[in-house]
């Protein structure tokens, strides 16, 4: 497996000067943190159940399955049925976590999510792995680049994209306590730790590393790390660039966004998703109505992905720190 860390030449110092302390740890995939956290939650909470659609080894729900076979339901390759069954379990007071790859979770079962989860407001937790282009070699059929847009459009749905393994653990615990539908998007590849040790995820609350006088990069998922690298490079060139981790994409942290827009003349959004309908779309929608500033969107530009190593693909689709730096310099 290719690790993102190895593919980023710019990666020099993963520790952000303006954030709290981060213990040096080896990069870890957010899906691994999910599997561990779900297992821990399962031990404490008998109401938690898990479902998967024949990908439990990859989504890491297998850990929970081994420990709690009676509370785990493998639904086979049947995502629509998985979502409906999860809704039914939620209706009897269970807290179901339903997992598969992001493409299948959100695309194949969208109508089921819309009706049986969101419209019915059932307490279903959709935790999908393999979001984004860094799925890598499996190619476009498996790279969800539209999942955030699909989930964000649904009333009652909360959308969370954690930046690293520690934020994932914290977010999964918060999600288990939250009442109502949630979509959590996780990745396949290992990602460096970016969040301070003492950070805890709060739904709807962005984490501000720094608000830049010249520009602030609003990022989510693996792009938070990449945005920080870009900010360091920009700092070296005398440009004050801030970074915000907008891990809850819905509901958007409007207060923080306004604060950023009031200080930074330029906002750059960065996401491992289509520039249509995801984080960039949300930020543009909100700011254009409430505090118009120039926004540039870093993301996949209305195209499908392709096979390749995660690192190569980030370059090919313009998602590197260098791409962010260039966009900033061209827009300032």
């Amino acid at each position: 497996m290719t690790e993102l860390q190895n593919t980023r030449q710019e990666a020099q110092n993963p520790v952000q000067a303006h954030s709290g302390h981060i213990t040096e740890k080896k990069p870890k995939a957010t899906r691994d943190a999910y599997g561990e956290t779900l297992l821990e939650l399962g031990k404490r909470r008998p109401d938690i159940v898990a479902l998967d659609a024949d990908l439990s080894g990859s989504t890491k729900t297998a850990k929970f399955a081994r420990e709690f076979p009676d509370r785990f339901f493998n639904m086979g390759v049947a995502e629509q049925d998985m979502i409906g069954t999860a809704a039914g379990l939620a209706l009897t007071g269970k807290v179901p976590f339903a997992s598969t790859f992001a493409v299948f979770e959100t695309g194949r079962a969208w109508d089921q999510i819309r009706l049986a989860v969101c419209y019915s407001n059932t307490n279903v937790k959709l935790v999908a792995t393999h979001g984004g282009i860094t799925v890598g070699e499996d190619g476009a059929s498996h790279q969800a680049l539209e999942d955030i847009a699909l989930m964000r459009a649904l009333p009652n749905m909360m959308v969370i994209v954690p930046a690293d393994a520690s934020e994932t653990a914290s977010a999964i615990s918060a999600v288990a306590d939250h009442k109502g539908p949630v979509y959590v998007r996780l990745g396949r590849a290992k990602v460096p730790y970016v969040m301070p040790d003492d950070y805890t995820f709060t739904p709807g609350k962005a984490f501000v590393f720094h608000i830049g006088k010249d520009v602030t990069i609003i990022a989510a998922g693996i792009m938070v790390d990449i945005a920080q690298k870009a900010a360091e490079i920009l700092a070296g060139e005398g440009i004050d660039a801030g970074v915000v981790n907008m891990s809850t994409i819905k509901p958007l942290d409007e207060e923080t966004l306004l604060r950023v827009a009031e200080t930074s003349g330029l906002i750059v959004t960065a996401e491992e998703h289509s520039v249509i309908g995801g984080l960039g779309g949300s930020v543009c929608e909100f700011l254009s109505e409430n505090h118009p500033v120039t926004v540039r969107r870093i993301g996949v530009r209305d195209t499908f992905g392709c096979s390749g190593s995660p690192g190569d693909l980030l370059k090919r689709y313009g998602l590197t720190a260098g791409d962010i730096v260039e966009t900033v310099k061209n827009s300032i």
Partner: peptide, 12 residues
């Protein structure tokens, strides 16, 4: 969609 939901309730 209903049978899936019914199954989930029955399992719960």
């Amino acid at each position: 969609q209903g049978l899936s939901v019914a199954n989930g309730m029955a399992l719960g």
